[in-house]
Design a binder for these strands. Structure first.
Length: 695
DNA sequence: ATAGGGTTAG
């Protein structure tokens, strides 16, 4: 029947006897090895200890050690190793294996030094262990030493050392090893050739990899996978899919690794349907293929589907790991779904992965993007070994939520803790300065990047600087910055300039920025709308009309705007002037009630923010029923009582009228509103917004 | 008498 169950029963019966003959132990330990069953191995060892059984050879203990080593049970391995009366080369090699899988590099090298009679296997194990930790020079050192000491260098040695090189993309040293492989005549070994193919592919020399691949006599599934993943890593997505077709014709059966690679290729091309079809065809779906599906959906803006997939994965009894959890957490972040985010947070705690860098920073990001910087901070404070990534997530979280001074304080704290800031850190720091209007301080931070931290500013940082200068009225300075950049300005730079021009009513520079954007992104309606609104603000209706006719003749469509709210775990989506919701009538009644209340309190809709120069009544109509207002009305209607915060999400930037509207609602109706638009967070409370009216 | 070390995917 079930071999694992049989083993358990055999060991159960062992426990009913006190005297056991050595052959029985030998038989059982071999079963433990065959099934790699650490649990039964431990029970077996306990039984031997309890009965003071002292084996005459090292064999049984060595096999137990091997089971522990192979399943990463480092402490069990170490305990057994420490109390073994005699040790031979098999003992040492098994312990080396345990360290190379789990322990520190120091432990690994420390043990290696003490081994009295190292053989080829000892060397190969250490080289492999060093390689998986990215210690290439150490791995190479051991490799050289083994040659000097006359230990036999085998295919195993070459594969391990090549793997070390490819892990850190060290092609120069990899090529030296390649030379040695040729001299030794090991080019016909499949393992060695696969490792070489992988090395060249990973290091960006796809053609060299393909050359080797084409000359391989017996390509196995790993050969194909190495080449397919090489194409994918180098962005040759079509080649990757093409080779997959060739593979199917070759008669080598694709496995779950092949499919995971090809899935990645389909997702990169947005061919989601094909990815789903391919995924459905794999019989044995593992964590990685599920996670690839989840990540692929998130990358293609299908966050809800990624959560559905996550559920299906759990139903299929595949255990998620830290990669899965961090990607579903970021799915929740992008959806700003506090409900699911908290559920998955709970799951991560249960799994014990919440302290992992990947997971914890995703959690900090999730709570921040749900407008909960205080919760984010709680997570941040529990992280044991905070990495640059952890600090970055929290600094950015504060900055996104209008807690700009907290962001800057945290940055100073980061420096005091001796953590090195990186390029991302400064995006957070600079945007905090922008919103606080700290022009001088921001400028200093910008200069400190190169001077004190050796970080080359990217276009993102220049965009922050332009924002910083522009918002303090120095549009000319912002423009000079663009001219002085070591890069060609991209659309981000020009749209940043355009937005500060709008703030300053600087039509001259605004037109210049818009003109660049028209060329860089001919289908983007944003610059047309912004420029048009700038003209409208100055009453230049002729120019407004001209903009509209250009948009019409070039068939430029506004990006569909929508907002959504999450109520009791269900997402409700609205578009402008939406009548599709089943409770539409009630929603409009509620919204009109709110509008009347606000008008009495002095709210004046800002009619200049409408693109079309239509009649005033019509303007009012189209502006009053923007999607975020409908979402707000729905949320207030469904949750009228209590002081609960209303959270609304919007896929594009909030307009000035809606912003003013929300401020009024927070004061007159007395509810806190968190509105996340495509750009940042707006916390409305008592008539004020955390963005300080700059966005 | 028995035993060990290596390649591919997020």
């Amino acid at each position: 029947m079930n071999p694992k169950h049989n083993l358990k029963q055999a060991i159960d019966s062992l426990y009913r006897h006190t005297h056991v003959n050595p052959e029985a132990y030998t038989r059982l330990v071999l079963d433990c090895v065959r099934l790699n069953d650490t649990h039964q191995a431990k029970r077996l060892q306990t039984h031997m200890d309890n009965n003071l059984f002292e084996p005459t050879t090292t064999f049984i203990h060595n096999r137990l050690l091997h089971v522990y080593a192979n399943s990463g049970k480092l402490s069990d391995a170490r305990n057994l190793f420490d109390k073994m009366p005699q040790r031979d080369i098999f003992t040492y090699n098994a312990m080396l294996k345990a360290y190379s899988k789990m322990g520190s590099v120091d432990d690994l090298l420390g043990l290696f030094k003490t081994i009295p009679c190292k053989d080829s296997v000892s060397y190969n194990t250490v080289i492999a262990g060093l390689g998986t930790r990215g210690c290439v020079s150490e791995a190479l050192e051991v490799f050289v030493r083994m040659q000097k000491e006359g230990v036999e260098v085998t295919g195993y040695s070459y594969v391990s050392v090549l793997n070390a090189c490819s892990r850190v993309l060290d092609l120069r040293r990899g090529k030296e090893v390649h030379g040695k492989v040729v001299v030794c005549g090991l080019m016909f070994s499949g393992f060695v050739c696969n490792a070489l193919t992988d090395l060249y592919a990973k290091c960006g020399e796809v053609d060299a990899a393909r050359w080797l691949f084409d000359r391989m006599r017996d390509k196995n599934v790993v050969s194909w996978n190495s080449m397919i993943s090489g194409y994918l890593k180098n962005g040759l997505v079509e080649k990757c899919i093409e080779l997959f077709s060739e593979m199917k014709l070759s008669g080598v059966k694709p496995d779950v690794v092949t499919v995971s690679n090809v899935l990645g290729a389909f997702f990169q091309m947005g061919r989601i349907g094909e990815a789903q079809k391919l995924f459905a065809e794999i019989e044995k779906k593992d964590v990685i293929s599920w996670t690839t599906m989840i990540v692929g959906h998130v990358q293609n803006g299908k966050e809800e589907d990624s959560l559905v997939l996550f559920n299906e994965m759990l139903m299929a009894n595949v255990k998620p790991d830290k990669f899965t959890i961090s990607s579903v957490v970021s799915s929740c972040a992008r959806l700003a779904s506090l409900f699911y985010g908290q559920t998955i947070h709970g799951k991560s705690v249960h799994m014990g992965v919440e302290d992992d860098t990947l997971v914890s920073s995703a959690l900090v990001d999730m709570y921040s993007k749900c407008g909960e910087p205080t919760e984010a901070r709680k997570i941040f404070d529990t992280i044991h070994a905070k990495s640059t990534v952890s600090w970055n997530s929290m600094i950015l979280g504060y900055a996104q939520n209008g807690k700009d001074l907290e962001a800057l304080t945290l940055y100073e704290e980061m420096l005091n803790n001796g953590i090195k800031p990186d390029s991302i850190t400064f995006v957070g720091v600079l945007s905090a300065c922008i919103h606080e209007g700290l022009t001088e301080r921001g400028d200093q931070y910008f200069r400190s990047m190169t001077k004190q931290h050796g970080i080359v500013p990217t276009l993102d940082h220049y965009a922050c600087l332009i924002n910083l200068l522009g918002r303090s009225g120095r549009v000319e300075g912002a423009f000079e910055t663009i001219k002085g950049m070591p890069y060609k300005p991209d659309s981000l730079i020009w749209s940043t300039l355009l937005s500060v021009c709008k703030l300053n009513g600087d039509i001259e520079h605004g037109e210049m920025a818009a003109k660049q954007l028209f060329e860089l992104e001919p289908n983007n309606a944003e610059p047309y709308i912004t420029l048009s609104n700038m003209y409208a603000a100055k009453g230049r209706w002729k120019d407004v009309a001209a903009m509209r006719s250009v948009m019409n003749s070039n068939k430029i469509k506004k990006f569909a705007a929508f907002s959504w709210v999450e109520l009791d775990g269900k997402v409700h989506k609205f578009v402008s002037e939406d009548r599709a919701h089943p409770e539409s009538e009630a929603i409009y009644r509620e919204l009109n009630r709110i509008i009347r209340k606000l008008l009495k309190a002095g709210f004046t809709p800002n009619k200049n923010l409408v693109l079309h120069d239509v009649g005033d009544d019509e303007k009012l109509e189209s502006i009053c029923y923007h999607s975020e207002k409908l979402a707000l009305a729905y949320a207030l209607m469904k949750k009228p009582e209590g002081r609960k915060t209303v959270r609304i999400l919007k896929n594009i930037r909030v307009c000035g009228d809606c912003h003013l509207f929300m401020k009024f609602v927070s004061r007159i109706i007395g509810r806190t509103i968190i509105l996340r638009d495509s750009n940042r967070f707006h916390h409305f409370s008592a008539g004020c917004c955390s963005c300080k009216d700059l966005w």
